[in-house]
């Protein structure tokens, strides 16, 4: 008699028990996933996703500005001296009139998978030659990526270039 009553009560609570068990299993499963993630992929969780998102949006806006302002850039790089110093010449051509007033032009050069030679410098304008900027950079041979930032009173524009230097 007692057994039957216990069984009947147990039957009545099958669903609530199953729900509790389900959530316990879910918690264990998620704990396992989190532990695995933290131990094997500590970089999987970004600590500052919003800040990175905003920074990325700023880059997108700068690229968009270059497109809207009709900026075209040509980059020419001289051959290297024994110390790998090369003269980088950036020529900014624009289709927009009146011409943009350029406050400053900076260049950032970097190589994939090698941050040891990353560098960022301001380019010097060539007097009397609108849109022509030059600078000496340490650029050993290899594939280089250049980010040219053009600062104007209206905002900043960004142009990306890629060159293989022999």
């Amino acid at each position: 008699m007692n057994n039957s009553s216990t069984l009947s009560k147990f039957q009545y609570y099958k669903w609530p028990l199953a729900i509790v068990l389900f959530f316990i299993c879910l918690a264990i499963f998620h704990s396992f996933l989190l532990m695995t993630a933290f131990s094997k992929h500590p970089d999987a969780v970004d600590q500052a996703p919003y800040e990175k998102g905003i920074a990325y949006q700023q880059v997108i806006d700068k690229i968009e500005n270059a497109y809207v302002w009709g900026l075209k850039t040509e980059i020419s790089i001289s051959s290297a001296d024994p110390d790998n110093q090369r003269e980088v010449s950036v020529n900014i051509l624009e289709t927009k009139t009146p011409k943009l007033s350029i406050d400053k032009v900076t260049i950032r050069s970097f190589r994939a998978n090698d941050s040891s030679l990353d560098q960022e410098k301001e380019l010097n304008s060539v007097v009397g030659d609108y849109g022509n900027y030059r600078q000496i950079l340490n650029l050993p041979k290899g594939l280089w990526i250049f980010e040219i930032t053009i600062v104007t009173p209206q905002g900043e524009a960004l142009v990306k270039k890629q060159k293989f230097l022999s």
């Binding site: 039957q11 009545y12 099958k14 669903w15 609530p16 199953a18 729900i19 389900f22």
Partner: peptide
């Protein structure tokens, strides 16, 4: 009646309860 039986006998309603929760 369903709640007195095994969740596997009525998997859809049981799953719906979990989903609503």
């Amino acid at each position: 009646q369903m709640m007195q039986g095994s969740p596997t006998d009525n998997l859809v309603p049981f799953s719906l309860t979990i989903i609503f929760m």
